[in-house]
Nucleic acid binder design. Sequence first.
DNA 1: TTTATTAATCGTAATATTACAATAAATAGA
DNA 2: TCTATTTATTGTAATATTACGATTAATAAA
Lengths: 109, 109
Amino acid sequence: MGLTKTEIFTDKQNEIAQYAKVFGHPARVAILQYLFKLNACVCGDLVDEIGLAQPTISQHLKELKHLGLIKGNVEGTSVCYCIDADNWKKMKRVMSEFLDQDLDKKECC
Amino acid sequence: MGLTKTEIFTDKQNEIAQYAKVFGHPARVAILQYLFKLNACVCGDLVDEIGLAQPTISQHLKELKHLGLIKGNVEGTSVCYCIDADNWKKMKRVMSEFLDQDLDKKECC
DNA sequence: TTTATTAATCGTAATATTACAATAAATAGA
DNA sequence: TCTATTTATTGTAATATTACGATTAATAAA
Protein backbone atom coordinates (compact mmCIF):
# COMPACT_ATOMS: atom_id res chain seq x y z
CA MET A 1 0.00 0.00 0.00
CA GLY A 2 0.91 3.63 -0.12
CA LEU A 3 1.07 3.46 -3.85
CA THR A 4 -1.65 4.90 -6.05
CA LYS A 5 -3.48 2.33 -8.17
CA THR A 6 -3.12 4.24 -11.42
CA GLU A 7 -4.08 1.20 -13.49
CA ILE A 8 -7.71 1.30 -12.42
CA PHE A 9 -8.19 4.87 -13.66
CA THR A 10 -8.49 6.32 -17.15
CA ASP A 11 -5.57 8.05 -18.85
CA LYS A 12 -7.44 11.32 -18.60
CA GLN A 13 -7.98 10.93 -14.86
CA ASN A 14 -4.32 10.14 -14.33
CA GLU A 15 -3.28 13.07 -16.51
CA ILE A 16 -5.45 15.51 -14.56
CA ALA A 17 -4.14 14.14 -11.26
CA GLN A 18 -0.55 14.42 -12.46
CA TYR A 19 -0.89 18.05 -13.42
CA ALA A 20 -2.76 18.84 -10.22
CA LYS A 21 -0.14 17.09 -8.14
CA VAL A 22 2.63 19.30 -9.43
CA PHE A 23 0.58 22.36 -8.48
CA GLY A 24 -0.06 20.80 -5.10
CA HIS A 25 2.95 22.36 -3.42
CA PRO A 26 3.16 26.10 -2.67
CA ALA A 27 6.83 26.25 -3.65
CA ARG A 28 6.03 25.12 -7.17
CA VAL A 29 3.11 27.54 -7.34
CA ALA A 30 5.46 30.31 -6.20
CA ILE A 31 8.10 29.37 -8.76
CA LEU A 32 5.56 29.46 -11.58
CA GLN A 33 4.08 32.76 -10.42
CA TYR A 34 7.55 34.25 -10.30
CA LEU A 35 8.34 33.03 -13.81
CA PHE A 36 5.10 34.62 -15.02
CA LYS A 37 5.69 37.86 -13.14
CA LEU A 38 9.20 38.42 -14.42
CA ASN A 39 8.00 38.21 -17.98
CA ALA A 40 11.34 36.73 -18.88
CA CYS A 41 13.73 33.97 -18.08
CA VAL A 42 14.88 33.59 -14.53
CA CYS A 43 18.49 32.70 -13.95
CA GLY A 44 19.04 31.54 -10.45
CA ASP A 45 17.41 34.08 -8.17
CA LEU A 46 14.67 31.60 -7.34
CA VAL A 47 16.50 30.40 -4.24
CA ASP A 48 16.64 33.93 -2.78
CA GLU A 49 13.13 34.68 -3.97
CA ILE A 50 11.41 31.62 -2.52
CA GLY A 51 13.43 31.01 0.63
CA LEU A 52 14.11 27.31 0.42
CA ALA A 53 17.51 25.66 0.16
CA GLN A 54 19.08 25.37 -3.27
CA PRO A 55 18.73 21.58 -3.55
CA THR A 56 15.06 21.86 -2.63
CA ILE A 57 14.39 24.44 -5.33
CA SER A 58 16.35 22.35 -7.80
CA GLN A 59 14.17 19.37 -6.94
CA HIS A 60 10.95 21.34 -7.48
CA LEU A 61 12.26 22.71 -10.77
CA LYS A 62 12.99 19.17 -11.89
CA GLU A 63 9.39 18.14 -11.31
CA LEU A 64 8.06 21.14 -13.23
CA LYS A 65 10.49 20.42 -16.05
CA HIS A 66 9.55 16.74 -16.06
CA LEU A 67 5.91 17.63 -16.77
CA GLY A 68 7.08 20.06 -19.42
CA LEU A 69 5.62 23.15 -17.82
CA ILE A 70 8.96 24.95 -17.75
CA LYS A 71 12.14 24.72 -19.75
CA GLY A 72 15.69 25.50 -18.79
CA ASN A 73 18.52 26.87 -20.84
CA VAL A 74 22.15 26.78 -19.81
CA GLU A 75 23.64 30.28 -19.87
CA GLY A 76 27.21 30.31 -18.72
CA THR A 77 27.41 28.87 -15.22
CA SER A 78 23.77 29.52 -14.53
CA VAL A 79 20.53 28.11 -15.96
CA CYS A 80 17.68 30.17 -17.32
CA TYR A 81 14.13 29.01 -16.71
CA CYS A 82 10.86 30.05 -18.28
CA ILE A 83 7.33 28.80 -18.81
CA ASP A 84 6.89 26.46 -21.78
CA ALA A 85 3.96 28.27 -23.37
CA ASP A 86 2.82 25.45 -25.64
CA ASN A 87 2.75 22.87 -22.88
CA TRP A 88 1.15 25.33 -20.49
CA LYS A 89 -1.70 25.73 -22.98
CA LYS A 90 -2.02 21.97 -23.31
CA MET A 91 -2.22 21.64 -19.55
CA LYS A 92 -4.82 24.39 -19.40
CA ARG A 93 -7.04 22.61 -21.88
CA VAL A 94 -6.93 19.42 -19.82
CA MET A 95 -7.55 21.17 -16.52
CA SER A 96 -10.27 23.45 -17.88
CA GLU A 97 -12.21 20.53 -19.27
CA PHE A 98 -12.22 19.10 -15.78
CA LEU A 99 -12.87 22.30 -13.83
CA ASP A 100 -15.50 23.73 -16.17
CA GLN A 101 -17.98 20.90 -15.92
CA ASP A 102 -21.59 21.88 -15.96
CA LEU A 103 -22.99 22.74 -12.53
CA ASP A 104 -26.69 22.83 -13.43
CA LYS A 105 -29.03 20.67 -11.42
CA LYS A 106 -26.11 19.30 -9.48
CA GLU A 107 -27.20 20.05 -5.94
CA CYS A 108 -29.89 17.96 -4.43
CA CYS A 109 -28.62 17.53 -0.88
CA MET B 1 11.83 17.64 7.14
CA GLY B 2 9.15 16.11 5.03
CA LEU B 3 6.79 18.86 6.05
CA THR B 4 5.90 21.68 3.74
CA LYS B 5 6.98 25.12 4.95
CA THR B 6 3.61 26.77 4.43
CA GLU B 7 4.57 29.78 6.52
CA ILE B 8 6.99 31.12 3.92
CA PHE B 9 4.31 31.29 1.22
CA THR B 10 1.39 33.62 0.68
CA ASP B 11 -2.15 32.64 1.59
CA LYS B 12 -3.02 32.57 -2.08
CA GLN B 13 -0.15 30.25 -2.92
CA ASN B 14 -1.16 27.89 -0.13
CA GLU B 15 -4.78 28.02 -1.21
CA ILE B 16 -3.95 27.14 -4.80
CA ALA B 17 -1.69 24.31 -3.64
CA GLN B 18 -4.38 22.96 -1.33
CA TYR B 19 -6.98 22.81 -4.06
CA ALA B 20 -4.52 21.31 -6.49
CA LYS B 21 -3.44 18.72 -3.97
CA VAL B 22 -6.96 17.38 -3.59
CA PHE B 23 -7.16 16.98 -7.36
CA GLY B 24 -3.77 15.30 -7.30
CA HIS B 25 -5.12 11.79 -6.93
CA PRO B 26 -7.00 10.00 -9.73
CA ALA B 27 -9.51 8.48 -7.31
CA ARG B 28 -10.68 11.93 -6.24
CA VAL B 29 -10.78 13.07 -9.86
CA ALA B 30 -12.87 9.99 -10.68
CA ILE B 31 -15.23 10.62 -7.77
CA LEU B 32 -15.81 14.21 -8.86
CA GLN B 33 -16.30 13.25 -12.49
CA TYR B 34 -18.84 10.65 -11.44
CA LEU B 35 -20.74 13.16 -9.31
CA PHE B 36 -20.84 15.51 -12.27
CA LYS B 37 -21.87 12.80 -14.72
CA LEU B 38 -24.76 11.49 -12.66
CA ASN B 39 -26.30 14.92 -12.53
CA ALA B 40 -27.65 14.02 -9.12
CA CYS B 41 -26.67 12.83 -5.71
CA VAL B 42 -24.79 9.61 -5.43
CA CYS B 43 -25.71 7.32 -2.63
CA GLY B 44 -23.03 4.77 -2.08
CA ASP B 45 -22.25 3.23 -5.44
CA LEU B 46 -18.89 4.98 -5.53
CA VAL B 47 -17.11 1.93 -4.13
CA ASP B 48 -18.36 -0.30 -6.97
CA GLU B 49 -17.82 2.45 -9.51
CA ILE B 50 -14.25 3.32 -8.60
CA GLY B 51 -12.90 -0.04 -7.55
CA LEU B 52 -11.16 0.80 -4.31
CA ALA B 53 -12.02 -0.54 -0.87
CA GLN B 54 -14.78 1.19 1.07
CA PRO B 55 -12.50 2.72 3.73
CA THR B 56 -10.30 4.13 0.98
CA ILE B 57 -13.22 5.78 -0.79
CA SER B 58 -14.49 7.10 2.50
CA GLN B 59 -11.09 8.64 3.16
CA HIS B 60 -11.02 10.35 -0.23
CA LEU B 61 -14.58 11.63 0.26
CA LYS B 62 -13.53 13.09 3.58
CA GLU B 63 -10.77 15.11 1.94
CA LEU B 64 -13.12 16.43 -0.72
CA LYS B 65 -15.67 17.32 1.94
CA HIS B 66 -13.02 18.98 4.08
CA LEU B 67 -12.21 21.40 1.26
CA GLY B 68 -15.93 21.98 0.76
CA LEU B 69 -16.03 20.70 -2.81
CA ILE B 70 -18.71 18.13 -2.06
CA LYS B 71 -21.40 17.78 0.54
CA GLY B 72 -23.00 14.69 2.01
CA ASN B 73 -26.50 14.13 3.21
CA VAL B 74 -27.60 11.22 5.37
CA GLU B 75 -30.45 9.34 3.72
CA GLY B 76 -31.49 6.33 5.72
CA THR B 77 -28.54 4.04 6.20
CA SER B 78 -26.68 5.52 3.26
CA VAL B 79 -25.15 8.91 2.57
CA CYS B 80 -25.85 11.01 -0.48
CA TYR B 81 -23.04 13.02 -2.04
CA CYS B 82 -23.03 15.85 -4.55
CA ILE B 83 -20.88 18.74 -5.74
CA ASP B 84 -21.14 21.91 -3.65
CA ALA B 85 -21.77 24.30 -6.53
CA ASP B 86 -20.96 27.53 -4.66
CA ASN B 87 -17.64 26.27 -3.37
CA TRP B 88 -16.82 24.71 -6.71
CA LYS B 89 -17.23 28.14 -8.29
CA LYS B 90 -15.02 29.72 -5.62
CA MET B 91 -12.36 27.12 -6.30
CA LYS B 92 -12.62 27.73 -10.03
CA ARG B 93 -12.02 31.44 -9.58
CA VAL B 94 -8.88 30.79 -7.56
CA MET B 95 -7.52 28.18 -9.95
CA SER B 96 -8.41 30.13 -13.07
CA GLU B 97 -6.58 33.19 -11.84
CA PHE B 98 -3.51 31.01 -11.51
CA LEU B 99 -3.87 28.99 -14.71
CA ASP B 100 -4.90 31.88 -16.96
CA GLN B 101 -1.82 34.01 -16.46
CA ASP B 102 -0.62 35.92 -19.47
CA LEU B 103 1.72 33.94 -21.70
CA ASP B 104 2.93 36.80 -23.93
CA LYS B 105 6.66 37.33 -24.21
CA LYS B 106 7.26 34.53 -21.73
CA GLU B 107 9.56 32.33 -23.74
CA CYS B 108 13.10 33.41 -24.23
CA CYS B 109 14.97 30.15 -23.86
C1' DT C 1 -34.86 -6.51 20.11
C1' DT C 2 -32.28 -8.70 16.65
C1' DT C 3 -30.38 -8.55 12.13
C1' DA C 4 -28.93 -6.43 7.92
C1' DT C 5 -27.04 -2.57 5.51
C1' DT C 6 -24.14 1.23 4.86
C1' DA C 7 -20.64 4.51 5.97
C1' DA C 8 -17.03 6.21 9.20
C1' DT C 9 -13.11 5.41 12.05
C1' DC C 10 -8.94 3.11 13.78
C1' DG C 11 -4.70 0.97 13.19
C1' DT C 12 -1.04 0.01 10.35
C1' DA C 13 2.04 -1.38 6.43
C1' DA C 14 3.95 0.23 2.17
C1' DT C 15 5.28 3.95 -0.38
C1' DA C 16 5.91 8.92 -1.59
C1' DT C 17 7.18 13.60 -0.60
C1' DT C 18 9.74 17.32 1.38
C1' DA C 19 13.80 19.46 2.90
C1' DC C 20 18.59 19.98 3.30
C1' DA C 21 23.72 18.95 4.13
C1' DA C 22 27.33 17.27 1.52
C1' DT C 23 29.16 16.67 -2.70
C1' DA C 24 29.74 16.59 -7.62
C1' DA C 25 29.58 18.69 -12.16
C1' DA C 26 29.99 22.34 -15.31
C1' DT C 27 31.52 26.62 -16.86
C1' DA C 28 33.75 31.39 -16.51
C1' DG C 29 37.37 34.14 -15.45
C1' DA C 30 41.96 35.10 -13.40
C1' DT D 1 45.59 25.52 -14.29
C1' DC D 2 43.35 27.24 -10.27
C1' DT D 3 39.47 29.44 -8.22
C1' DA D 4 34.88 31.09 -7.94
C1' DT D 5 30.14 30.57 -9.18
C1' DT D 6 26.09 28.17 -10.08
C1' DT D 7 23.21 24.17 -10.51
C1' DA D 8 22.45 19.12 -10.17
C1' DT D 9 22.82 14.90 -7.65
C1' DT D 10 23.19 11.85 -3.70
C1' DG D 11 21.91 10.38 0.66
C1' DT D 12 18.91 10.60 4.32
C1' DA D 13 15.73 12.05 8.13
C1' DA D 14 11.13 13.60 9.02
C1' DT D 15 6.64 13.60 7.64
C1' DA D 16 2.60 12.64 4.59
C1' DT D 17 -0.17 9.77 1.70
C1' DT D 18 -2.42 5.68 0.13
C1' DA D 19 -4.76 1.50 0.83
C1' DC D 20 -7.19 -1.81 3.36
C1' DG D 21 -8.58 -5.19 7.22
C1' DA D 22 -11.02 -4.90 11.33
C1' DT D 23 -14.14 -2.61 13.85
C1' DT D 24 -17.55 0.73 15.21
C1' DA D 25 -21.63 3.61 14.56
C1' DA D 26 -26.00 4.56 12.82
C1' DT D 27 -30.21 3.55 10.89
C1' DA D 28 -33.83 0.46 8.71
C1' DA D 29 -36.39 -3.48 8.59
C1' DA D 30 -37.91 -7.86 10.37
